[in-house]
Design a protein around this nucleic acid. Structure first.
Lengths: 112, 112
DNA sequence: GTCTTATGTATCATAAATGAATCAACAAAC
DNA sequence: GTTTGTTGATTCATTTATGATACATAAGAC
């Protein structure tokens, strides 16, 4: 992330990133695909795939999701069909939300 | 994603990205946080948060996960404790995997 | 054991992600 | 109605993610 990368990531984010990397490697090995072969299939370089498998926070989410998709790893525990349904439902819901938030300052779940 | 952005994303990835953005906005509004307030809290700019909420595939996964974490959106449907457990389990499993894949070419789930 | 090949790591050039700033449009509160 | 302030969108400079390459190491097949 450009600009003086000073801010730290939460443990939760780091764990999720690492788990994602692990799942990807697991799936890749299970599919008997070499890093090079999978990278090529996704249109990315082997070095990027390597970073993804290591749980690098700096990889773009599109690359990570695409790799997961190719390997059949479900995102949000949803398959293609249900994901599409969930999305359209979510999009409808968006329309009902207030367009702008006023005040600010409100308590947020800090416990996780 | 640097380098001549030519490769297209799968529908699945795009849907997952958009859903993630929707969930984030929903949660932010529910928490009564302005985009500026949340961005500041995560150490990112409002413009980046805006792209994240739009489901931009080019955002780094670290930024997206961090925002989700702050909002209490569960990744992999796991809370902090269970995520940590799932991770350590996954990491142990990694050690048992073959270090290198031979052959290549194997069928992969292309149906989703 | 040898041979072949996948992986880990590092470096570098370049394309792209990010932050900052600006402005218009619109929604909420009054 | 007016006012205040959030959001959407754009542009630009800067920092960084990515791809390419090279190399050492190690693991699988024989």
């Amino acid at each position: 992330m450009p600009k003086s990368s000073t801010h730290a990531y939460s443990r939760y984010s780091l764990d999720a990133l690492e788990l994602m990397g692990n799942l990807i490697r697991e799936s890749r090995v299970a599919a008997n695909l070499t890093a090079e072969a999978l990278a090529q299939r996704a249109g990315i370089s082997r070095s990027l795939l390597h970073r993804i498998e290591k749980g690098d926070a700096g990889c773009t989410i599109g690359a990570v999701f695409e790799i997961a998709a190719i390997l059949g790893i479900q995102l949000f525990d949803l398959d293609a069909k249900n994901l599409a349904m969930r999305l359209s439902y979510s999009t409808e819901k968006q329309a009902l939300l207030p367009k702008a938030v006023r005040s600010s300052k409100k308590v947020v779940k800090d416990d996780f």
